[in-house]
Amino acid sequence: MAAFETLYRRHKDPLWRYLLRGAGDREACYEMFQDVWSSVVRSRSNWEPRARFTTWLYTLAHNRLVDYYRLRNLATAPLEEAEDVAGPEHESPDAIARNAQLRQRLLDTLAQLPHEQREAFLLREEGGLSLEEIGQATGVGRETVKSRLRYALAKLRQELSDVWP
């Protein structure tokens, strides 16, 4: 039980953000988050020690997210709008306003990406997975992952050109 608690505390926030940005819906994320951890507990015997726990965790999360897409008939369509994020309270009002604006632009751009590209970006940023591990979690090859990331980064750079030289 102690081992599970350690794993949970280490991965809960990145997983939460992955699901929240992947689904774009806090309520759905709340439910999926519990489902994924419940799957981790129930199918712990299926985990192979050869695979990284992180890869396995995000594979479960990806599958749950795909179910959500199918349920919502989202296919590869972009999300309607990004979920707002509250900024840290210790910054000055100007800085808070500026950073909040930047964050919102980033999130909006990310929400506009096709979900495969968005997922690849999130798996790298939140899960810290390598190209191979992203491919393993999403069931595609390494080159496909690279292609998806290239498209995602090109789109982000285009939208954030004023802060991304």
Partner: peptide, 10 residues
């Protein structure tokens, strides 16, 4: 930018 955006989100 992403690291800043996710700050405090848990």
């Amino acid at each position: 930018a992403w690291r800043e955006a996710r700050h405090g989100e848990s």
